[in-house]
């Protein structure tokens, strides 16, 4: 995934689309610390009042390419790096110890503190391709993995290989400025890592996240 911060307006459409796509519950407004949002806008403030500037960056799970810390510590294989390089989360395998998120330097996983509730009419908008999680398990962005499965199934039925750009995430589709681009870093996004504006979060930890940011252009 590539996020062009020069195009991003921090409108939050990706957050909403992600929650809608992945059956993320609204949450309890009294406990903002227990809220679940797989895709978030991280505010990084710079300077002190009155010379304040804020940089905002959409941030999903970073999908570390090299030894994801969450997968290293998971006691039951509920999270791991799969052959495609994605880091899935198996809700029915998770025991809810929360070690993964404490090991994650990005703290980009979420815990179901209580049973998710979908008051009317939200229950009618549930995505049938995505399970509703139980209370007590971890969850996180999985790059809309269910969509990859749909793309594969469709391609198999039509007797062809999946096409480039066919697998799209909800945040990518909802982004009005096309700041979020998604695809194989060796396919659709080839060369994005070599872009002069490219950087990743906490690069010095050497985890090689697969979310590549492109910083703002300076005029």
């Amino acid at each position: 995934m590539a996020v062009d911060l020069d195009r991003c307006t921090a409108c939050g459409a990706c957050t909403v689309a992600c929650a809608q796509e992945n059956n993320v519950a609204l949450g309890n407004p009294d406990r903002p610390d227990q809220l679940i949002r797989w895709m978030e806008i991280l505010p990084a403030e710079r300077g002190k009042y009155p010379e304040v500037s804020a940089r905002l960056a959409p941030s999903p799970c970073q999908h570390c390419d090299r030894e994801p810390p969450c997968a290293r510590v998971c006691p039951v294989y509920a999270t791991y790096r799969n052959v495609e390089g994605l880091i899935p989360q198996i809700y029915e395998q998770c025991i809810g110890c929360r070690y993964c998120v404490n090991a994650c330097p990005y703290t980009c996983k979420h815990f179901n503190w209580s049973r998710p509730e979908f008051p009317a009419p939200f229950e009618r908008g549930l995505n049938p391709d995505v399970s509703v999680r139980n209370a007590g398990v971890m969850e996180k962005c999985n790059f809309c993995y269910h969509r990859l499965q749909v793309v594969r199934d469709t391609a198999a039925q039509e007797g062809r290989e999946p096409k480039l750009g066919e697998y799209r995430t909800a945040c990518q589709e909802s982004c009005p400025t096309k700041a979020i681009r998604f695809g194989d870093l060796d396919g659709e996004l080839e060369g994005v890592r070599e872009n002069e504006r490219a950087f990743t979060l906490l690069e010095d930890l050497g985890l090689m996240p697969k979310v590549i940011y492109l910083k703002e252009k300076t005029s």
Binding site: R72, V73, C94, I95, G96, C97, R98, N134, G136
Partner: peptide, 21 residues
């Protein structure tokens, strides 16, 4: 502390020995 106490058996059934837990 465990979120899913009913899944505790998974530690024995499919424990990942590299995990400090």
């Amino acid at each position: 502390d465990l979120g899913r106490l009913d899944h505790l058996h998974k530690v024995y059934a499919s424990g990942r020995m590299q995990s400090p837990l």
